[in-house]
């Protein structure tokens, strides 16, 4: 009689206090799902259906809502990450590919890839606040830590468009190399990094003067130079390094943030797109589109520790601490 009782008690505890760790959420572009990875076990613990062709993904600051660019559904979906249910859609404009949330948690800046527009949506009122004409195929979305400047990069026009978030007008356009994919401010807000997929470079700007500080190039033995196609970028937790995903070169570059020199290359899965850092800041997760998996990298040693199979064409990634 005693044993079954204990067992029931144990089961009850498990249900009440989930034992899993933090989470990495990954959009699967060709499966119309998000995969949830447990950062302790490094296993996929849940898969939730989304709208069509999910790509960009991010959490609200309180991690209570997950925003998903469902590109072919022409919507940004808002998911309850606890239940995996879609709560509602936000008006996103056509074909949303990437977006960025303002530091005050209020506005989403959305790149409408097919319409050459940046759409600004108020997540509270669910209304479009502004639409800004940008270059063709907008994709990379960055925002300064103080929220004053939003950057949209356009892949075909090859520019970083600097948008004033007060007036919602473009205040400057800076040319970068071909097919800019991603824009990332340094955590101190002083630099803007823009990756150019076809140009094969990362351009670093001084955020204040918008002048070019330098350009980073990549080289790997036995990899064709044309295959070194920088896409996603992520600053390391201490901001001393920048991880740059090199697409079909199947590697990440580790760049020294100060000297802008490439320190190392890390082998990951095929056609690496984007990254997320675990909430405890020890692990980096990369989405590998072609191989359909996620590579987990130990940030301290800069070594890959595991590959996790997800859905087809994992694209975006976002982290959430233990709920």
């Amino acid at each position: 009689m005693k044993r079954p009782c204990l067992l029931i008690l144990a089961l009850g505890l498990t249900a009440a206090m989930p034992v899993h760790g933090d989470e990495i959420w990954v959009t699967n572009e060709l499966d119309d799902t998000v995969s949830v990875i447990d950062t302790d076990t490094l296993e996929v613990i849940a898969t939730h259906p989304t709208g069509q062709r999910p790509r960009g993904v991010t959490f609200s600051r309180d991690f209570k809502r997950l925003y998903i660019c469902a590109s072919d559904s022409n919507a940004v979906q808002v998911m309850d990450p606890d239940s995996g249910e879609i709560l509602h859609d936000l008006p996103s404009g056509a074909d949303p590919e990437q977006f960025i949330l303002s530091p005050d948690d209020r506005l989403l800046y959305i790149a409408n890839e097919d319409d050459a527009i940046t759409t600004v949506v108020d997540t509270a009122t669910r209304k479009v606040v502004a639409q800004i004409d940008v270059g063709i195929e907008p994709e990379g979305m960055g925002i300064s830590p103080d929220g004053r400047i939003q950057i949209t990069t356009s892949e075909t026009t090859n520019m970083a468009h600097w948008i004033d978030t007060q007036s919602h007008e473009i205040i400057a356009n800076t040319l970068v190399d071909a097919r800019p994919r991603h824009a990332e401010f340094s955590p101190d807000g002083r630099e803007l990094w823009v990756s150019s997929e076809i140009g094969g470079t990362v351009t670093v700007f001084d955020a204040e003067s918008r002048s070019e500080l330098g350009k980073i190039r990549f080289a790997l033995p036995n990899v064709r130079p044309e295959q070194l196609q920088p896409v996603g970028m992520k600053f390391s937790p201490d901001a001393s390094k920048v991880f740059v995903a090199l697409g079909p070169a199947n590697h990440l570059a580790v760049v020294d943030a100060a000297s802008r020199e490439v320190l190392d290359y890390i082998l990951v899965g095929r056609r690496v797109w984007h990254m997320a850092i675990s909430p405890d800041q020890t692990q980096l997760f990369t989405t590998n589109g072609v191989s359909g998996d996620v590579t987990v990298i130990d940030i301290a040693s800069q070594k890959p520790v595991k590959t996790i199979k997800t859905g087809r064409f994992p694209w975006g990634a976002a982290a959430r601490p233990t709920p």
């Binding site: 075909t156 090859n158 190399d177 071909a178 997929e197 094969g200 064709r224 044309e226």
Partner: peptide, 10 residues
């Protein structure tokens, strides 16, 4: 000169 021609290689 490098043109982005949507064929995977400049």
């Amino acid at each position: 000169f490098r043109l982005a021609g949507y064929l995977g290689t400049p």
